[in-house]
Write a protein that binds this DNA or RNA. Structure first.
Lengths: 345, 345
DNA sequence: CTGTTAGCGCGTTCAC
DNA sequence: GTGAACGCGCTAACAG
């Protein structure tokens, strides 16, 4: 017996125990073990006890691959981010993860580097894994990516930008409206030369939308849309620092800068500290994403409250709702935003 | 024909095309399609062409679930983090993801909230998915978790803290040595009353190790280990702010504070700015994790360079090396650290 | 409440 | 270079 056990350990090393063996130990059929695992109430408590005992004794972990193949259902959701490292997505991903975990789903994550080609590959890979749902933190896709998703019929949620014609479902806020609102806010505070800084807009639909929002804001204010007020720069602190210096050297009459992404505004603020320029006395600074940091720097930075966590939570709930057959769910959810006036403007 | 196609679309909705159908279209057997997919060189170029054409025409995506079940191999790695939202892990996760993606593997991520019970559940869930490898950003595990991993025989890497008896493999730096090195560094700079602030050490092995390192550093300096110099606080900017105020109110002779985690040091610096206290004139501030932010604040903050990205890269490479049969790999990799002296001390 | 039969869609193993 | 038979471990759909 111990001999046989030893041999098994060798021959079946790493392959684990099968459901059939649990069934034998508990004196029932494999089907009953399957039921005991997925719906304990559907078997007698006597049977349940013996099955659970056998599972404990053997350290059995059921093979979801086989289960999924047979049932044609998986509980894995695929998430594609423009960049995992980007802290902006952290709150959203955390919220998604929390909702999924509680409801028994798993999360596969990859990143596309904002390149539609990579996104396409990632989608194909996830469909190969037969994910039960897809979440795309981007709204620009290749034709093949769209075809793949449509023909697979996988529930899909786009987040990160509100789109009027989503592939399937969309949960976000309007980048355009938010950028416009901040621009108007700055104008109403009395700023007359409001510059706009964004990430490269080439392949970044959010950055492009934000610029359009800025321009719409200027128009509403009756201010001139001056190209010298608009600038693209790299992300991160150095990007903000560089933009600040470049803009003010080119035009000293600029009295406010609206940094439309990540920590650029903070990079600019630090540069002002180094130069001893008062903020907002010498120059006003506004940001876009509601990073925790913006609230804590001195002076605190005026920004937009973006519903990051809410986006994750609602996205996951919407996806699971679809998977579990809920009806009457919306296809597009606009979570809105809010201008937060602080000390930097 | 179009009728039949339409019916198929309905009856097989969302289930995709099977390999058998590609085979029929290409006039070969399913086996040949399988080969064409996994090892294109093993079929004639003529056959390959017809198979690829059929795949394009149908939008076929092969079912990895079935493939994995049959081959008993998967290409999914499971990663368990103490918290997804924590930006400290971002660089590590990014590096892991990059290495895996390039080599054709996928990443499942979940978080444990630093609770061993949750980690145990996550491990069981991942083993159920038959992940080919496990990465744990934590080195404290329940007994059952260890048993599960051992009996599954899944390659496992522990990161986040250097451990002498890893479950399997370990890639990290020594929290103890790093904390000690910084403490000694501060002492050599002339500070005589060095306080130490950490996250709650109860269930956080890294925080506990860092404190031991601090105490060892004091001993080496010949300074007294005074309990009033040691404090636990919550994470984040407010935690640092609170610690600064509390410590200096209790003992005005403290001349340096070593914040052993995340952004606490920055929270303290901002509080100094608010109060107009010069740093390091009134109080010196040192940090632990090499966050980008620490380099950019004014003054820049002395900290430890922690090999975050390198940890991810090496971990993934070590895991894949094991999976692909490389021999002579180390079980423990100590990536070291470095004290970075900046303007805050 | 429980068991039986028949796959799920691939890869392995052998034969040709 | 290619194909046929079989099995991976589980669940759907019945029957009892």
């Amino acid at each position: 017996m111990s001999n046989e056990a030893a041999r098994q350990r060798v021959t079946r090393k790493g392959n684990g125990v099968r459901m059939q063996e649990i069934a034998a130990l508990a004196g029932v059929s494999a089907m009953t073990v399957s039921r005991a695992l997925r719906d304990p109430d559907s078997v007698s408590s006597d049977t349940l006890g013996r099955v659970q005992a056998a599972i404990r004794d053997t350290g059995y972990v059921s093979n979801q691959l086989a289960g999924s193949l047979s049932s044609r259902r998986t509980n894995v959701v695929g998430l594609i981010l423009p960049g995992i490292q980007n802290s902006l997505y952290a709150a959203t991903v955390q919220a998604i993860s929390d909702v999924l975990r509680i409801r028994g789903y798993h999360l596969m994550i990859t990143d596309s580097g904002l390149r539609p080609r990579n996104e396409e590959e990632a989608i194909a890979a996830f469909l190969g894994q037969r994910v039960c749902g897809l979440m795309l933190h981007n709204t620009t896709h290749t034709t093949r990516a769209k075809t793949l998703i449509r023909s697979a019929g996988v529930p899909t949620i786009e987040i990160g930008n509100l789109v009027t014609q989503p592939l399937d479902m969309c949960v976000s806020y309007s980048s355009f409206a938010a950028a416009k609102a901040m621009t108007v806010h700055l104008g109403r505070l009395g700023y007359r030369r409001i510059a706009f800084v964004s990430l490269p807009r080439q392949e970044n639909d959010r950055a492009a939308e934000r610029m359009l929002g800025y321009q719409a804001g200027l128009k509403e204010l009756g201010q001139k849309d001056d190209p010298t007020l608009i600038m693209e720069t790299q992300s991160g602190f150095p990007g903000g620092q560089h933009a600040l210096i470049t803009l003010l050297e080119a035009d000293a009459t600029i009295d406010a800068i609206f940094f439309s992404a990540d920590v650029m505004a903070v990079g600019a603020l630090f540069e002002c500290q180094r130069r001893g320029w008062p903020v907002p006395g010498r120059i006003a600074i506004a940001s876009f994403d509601d990073l925790d940091l913006l609230r804590h720097v001195v002076p605190s930075i005026t920004t937009l409250r973006i519903p990051r966590q809410e986006t994750g939570r609602r996205s996951a709930e919407l996806l699971l709702g679809r998977l579990e057959g809920e009806t009457g769910q919306p296809r597009i959810v606009d979570l809105g935003f809010e201008v937060i006036q602080r000390d930097s403007t």
